[in-house]
Computed example of a mutant assay.
Amino acid sequence: MTYCVGIRLNQGLVFMSDTRTNAGVDNISSFRKMYTWCKPGDRLITLLSAGNLATTQTVVGLLEEHTKAAGDRNPDIMEVPSMFQAARLVGETVREVIKTASDNGAQSQAAFSATFILGGQIAGGAMRMFLIYPEGNFIEATDDNPFFQIGEHKYGKPILVRALDPDMSFEMAAKLLYVSFDSTLKSNLSVGLPLDMQFYERDSLTKGYEKRVEATDPYYRSISEGWSDALRSAFNSLPDFKRD
């Protein structure tokens, strides 16, 4: 399992992903789940992945391979003219990888399932973010739904729903994500540190701030401890139950 979040703010995009993968309690390891393609002044595209590790790595591998193969006629994520076309390309790649894997074995397509968050901006177009399903179809983030989650999302969703404001700064959004991820880490062992975080500033068309959050990170520890203390304080301040 995994946990990844993409947030669309008025000033840009914020991405965060964990790095834990597991095939049982005795087979846990770390793999990066955030991938970025950048050509400064032309495009910045970031992809977050959740699901079957072989599927997600194959999808990313194919997207990357097509950017380097001279004379390759396959669509190239570094050449598509819009973020919509980038989402179509990723969706088609996901669908083909899952279909090929299931056709070659006895397992159903569900065993190779994978979901992605794609966000960024291409010169001449708007900043956009999409949630891409295993079937290859996708939806776009809107003013009414300015964030997407994939993987183990239920524990970290309440704080996002209650506190997210599209007008907030990158720093406030980062604090919100730290709380969301800490709540998830404390509730599900299949999500784990380190975490990867990235900011994209609207119309910059280049990479923004990036950070890897380790277990020893002082700010992460202060947020984790502070949020626990704040919840206990809020709980204790509520009226006591009285029997009728």
Score class of each variant (00 low, 15 high):
136 G>K: 02
22 N>L: 04
10 N>D: 15
173 A>F: 01
159 I>N: 02
143 D>W: 07
47 L>G: 07
112 F>T: 03
243 R>A: 14
217 D>L: 09
11 Q>K: 04
205 L>T: 01
168 M>R: 06
210 E>H: 00
128 R>C: 15
219 Y>K: 06
78 M>Q: 05
51 G>K: 08
192 G>L: 05
179 V>T: 03
74 N>C: 09
79 E>W: 07
121 Q>A: 11
140 E>M: 03
56 T>E: 13
62 L>H: 09
64 E>D: 09
192 G>T: 03
28 I>F: 14
203 D>V: 01
171 E>R: 02
241 F>E: 11
202 R>V: 07
62 L>R: 05
82 S>P: 13
1 M>P: 13
16 M>K: 00
5 V>M: 02
193 L>V: 08
192 G>M: 14
15 F>L: 08
80 V>H: 04
202 R>E: 01
8 R>I: 07
199 F>E: 00
101 A>W: 11
30 S>C: 08
23 A>Q: 06
64 E>H: 10
164 L>K: 03
202 R>D: 02
105 G>S: 14
197 M>C: 04
89 L>W: 14
54 A>V: 09
215 A>V: 12
144 D>F: 11
177 L>Y: 05
127 M>H: 07
41 G>K: 03
91 G>W: 15
218 P>N: 04
95 R>P: 07
169 S>C: 01
1 M>S: 15
124 G>N: 04
63 L>C: 05
206 T>L: 05
64 E>S: 13
209 Y>P: 00
12 G>A: 01
42 D>N: 09
139 I>H: 08
122 I>N: 04
228 S>D: 09
54 A>M: 11
182 D>L: 07
27 N>H: 10
147 F>T: 06
19 T>S: 15
174 A>N: 04
134 P>R: 02
138 F>D: 06
73 R>G: 11
216 T>M: 14
218 P>E: 05
68 K>H: 13
128 R>E: 15
161 V>T: 07
57 Q>C: 07
222 S>Y: 03
137 N>H: 05
163 A>C: 13
130 F>G: 08
70 A>S: 13
57 Q>L: 15
99 K>F: 12
134 P>S: 08
24 G>L: 08
36 T>D: 02
185 L>Q: 05
174 A>H: 06
174 A>D: 09
104 N>I: 01
144 D>I: 03
205 L>D: 02
124 G>Q: 02
223 I>F: 12
104 N>Q: 15
113 S>H: 06
141 A>I: 04
183 S>G: 09
119 G>D: 03
109 Q>D: 08
80 V>S: 01
